[in-house]
Write a protein that binds this DNA or RNA. Structure first.
Length: 202
DNA sequence: CAAACGATTTTCT
DNA sequence: GAAAATCGTTTGG
C-alpha cells in the first residue's frame, strides 16, 4: 500500500525516518517503473538544526517547499551535479525533512543501470543520495510533487525492520553545522551492502 | 549584479 | 587518498 499522508504529518521526524527504513520508493516515469527499498536516511530537524536548509526559520524560494504540509518531495541540486531527494514531514509551517541516502534496487534494474550508464549491477548503483536519485530518474523538476502521486511515491510492502537492525550515527557532510553535526540523525539497516560509505563524525 | 559555497560522486595518482 | 567537476542558491555590495 502507498503510505498515507498521515504517515508524514507526524511531529517526530526521527521516528518517521526510522519508519522509512524497509519501505519502497517507486517512480513511474514515461511508463517505466523503477523502485528500491530504503536502507539509509538522515533526518533534518527544522529551524533548530544548524545542518538544515531551514535553520533559523530561513524561508527562501528553495526552502519554501519544506514549510508545506508533510508528504511532498523536496529535491535540490548539490555541487551543481547531484539531485538530492528528501521527504517533507510534519505539518504546514514546520520545515522538517528526511534525506534518502541509499536504496536497494528492486524493480526496473535494467532501466536504472541505463540511467546510470552502468552495465552490470553493483552496490554503487543506488548507494548514496545523488546516485539513487539518478537511478530512479528523480530530478529537481519533481520538487513539490505529492508522494501520493503515480510518478513518485513510497509503499509499504510489509517488510519489517527490527530495532536491533537499525544503526544510528552522525550525518554525512554536515561538519559546518558545529555541535549539531554530532547529533545521531543518520539511520541505516545494519549489514546492508547498499548503505553508502559516507562517513559522519564519530 | 558578482562571488562564494555546498546534505556528492567519480576519476586520477 | 586527493582533487576535479559544475551550477543553483544565497548573500553581500
Amino acid at each position: 500500500m502507498i503510505l498515507p499522508e498521515t504517515f508524514y504529518t507526524r511531529n517526530n521526524v526521527l521516528n518517521i525516518a526510522k519508519d522509512l527504513l524497509g519501505k519502497i520508493i517507486v517512480t513511474e516515469i514515461n511508463d517505466i517503473k523503477t523502485s528500491g527499498k530504503i536502507v539509509e536516511v538522515e533526518a533534518y530537524n527544522g529551524i533548530n538544526d544548524k545542518a538544515s536548509h531551514a535553520y533559523n526559520n530561513r524561508r527562501t524560494n528553495r526552502t519554501e517547499i519544506m514549510y508545506c504540509n508533510g508528504g511532498v518531495a523536496y529535491i535540490y541540486l548539490c555541487y551543481g551535479i547531484h539531485h538530492l531527494f528528501n521527504v517533507v514531514t510534519n505539518t504546514k509551517d514546520i520545515p522538517h525533512a528526511i534525506l534518502i541516502r541509499a536504496i536497494e534496487p528492486i524493480d526496473g534494474i535494467t532501466e536504472m543501470l541505463c540511467r546510470r550508464k552502468m552495465h552490470q549491477l553493483k552496490t554503487t548503483l543506488t548507494s548514496g543520495p545523488g546516485a539513487l536519485s539518478m537511478a530512479l530518474g528523480i530530478t529537481t523538476n519533481y520538487t513539490g510533487i505529492s508522494l501520493q502521486s503515480n510518478e513518485l511515491h513510497i509503499e509499504d510492502r510489509g517488510i519489517i525492520v527490527n530495532d536491533t537492525d537499525i544503526v544510528s550515527k552522525t550525518r554525512v557532510g554536515v561538519a559546518y553545522a558545529q555541535e549539531d553535526a554530532l547529533l545521531p540523525y543518520r539511520f541505516y539497516i545494519k549489514n546492508n551492502p547498499y548503505v553508502s560509505k559516507g562517513k559522519g563524525l564519530e
